[in-house]
Design a protein around this nucleic acid. Structure first.
Ligand SMILES: [Zn+2]
Ligand SMILES: [Zn+2]
Ligand SMILES: [Zn+2]
Ligand SMILES: [Zn+2]
Lengths: 132, 132
DNA sequence: CCGCGTAACGAGAATGATTGTCAAAAGCGC
DNA sequence: GCGCTTTTGACAATCATTCTCGTTACGCGG
């Protein structure tokens, strides 16, 4: 158990997904990314795309967003805790940090006796480019 | 076109769902509520439960939450904009208002030139009762 | 109190993203 | 190269939600 040999193997498919995530801008769905890989000529199964994205998300290397009424969206983000300001039209995303919000959330939860606190926060709007 | 006769009809099923929502505590899924109605002896189709909940949500009479990796949850809430502090274990919910958060979100969005701003914020934790 | 037109219902089928299956393919340490 | 594992991927399965469409029944005259 614990560590030992090669826990994670280096495969062509994993590299392809990682490389793609490094190049694309904004959030994209698994199916979306799968289609992009196909267009690039990379042959990667849809199941593998899902698995890889899950792995990266679990490892904290990418962020997952669940927009109202849509599929899961994935994006390579900077490290550390942050939130997203997302354009409804084009998906352009700005990472924002809100230390005040974090402490506020924790304090509110504590006041009501809640422990093991986490939170989700997303801001949606129309970016300058998409404003008519 | 426009308005005229009875746009919304008063049915036994709609009343049953509304009444149930008035009595239960916390957030519940459509399937959950459907089962409760069945146990009560009320005969209401699952499709109708979904439709009624959607209608109530659109009318702003109930709140919808989409917890990570689960079904939609519905709850009769108080009026006005607020957020939720939810217990992961039992679903106990506290409504919280965060004026600071609202203004912060709007300000951040404005700083980046985003307009027509909205946001989603939920706090999750383990309530005192569910803490071992 | 009766009939109609229409909104609402509901059983079952359809959808569609995500997950499970499992035999075949391919890393990696030796 | 060898062999042991991990990983892959075509396909089936899951499952909440939505769609279909014939049936029911609300509500407003008459
Ligand atoms: Zn991010
Ligand atoms: Zn609420
Ligand atoms: Zn609890
Ligand atoms: Zn708010």
């Amino acid at each position: 158990m614990s560590e030992s040999g090669a826990a994670v193997r280096n495969t062509r498919q994993r590299s392809a997904v990682s490389a793609l995530l490094a190049e694309v801008e904004g959030f994209h769905s698994a199916q979306d990314l799968h289609a992009m890989l196909r267009d690039r000529g990379e042959r990667v199964g849809l199941t593998t795309v899902y698995r890889t994205l899950q792995g990266l998300a679990d490892a904290g290397e990418i962020d997952v967003m669940r927009p109202p009424g849509g599929e899961h969206l994935y994006r390579r983000c900077s490290e550390g805790h942050h939130h997203h300001l997302v354009c409804r039209a084009c998906g352009r995303t700005v990472e924002v940090a809100g230390p005040t919000v974090e402490t506020w959330a924790d304090r509110v939860a504590a006041q009501h006796g809640y422990t093991d606190v986490s939170h989700t926060l997303e801001i949606f709007g129309t970016c300058p480019t998409c404003t008519p």
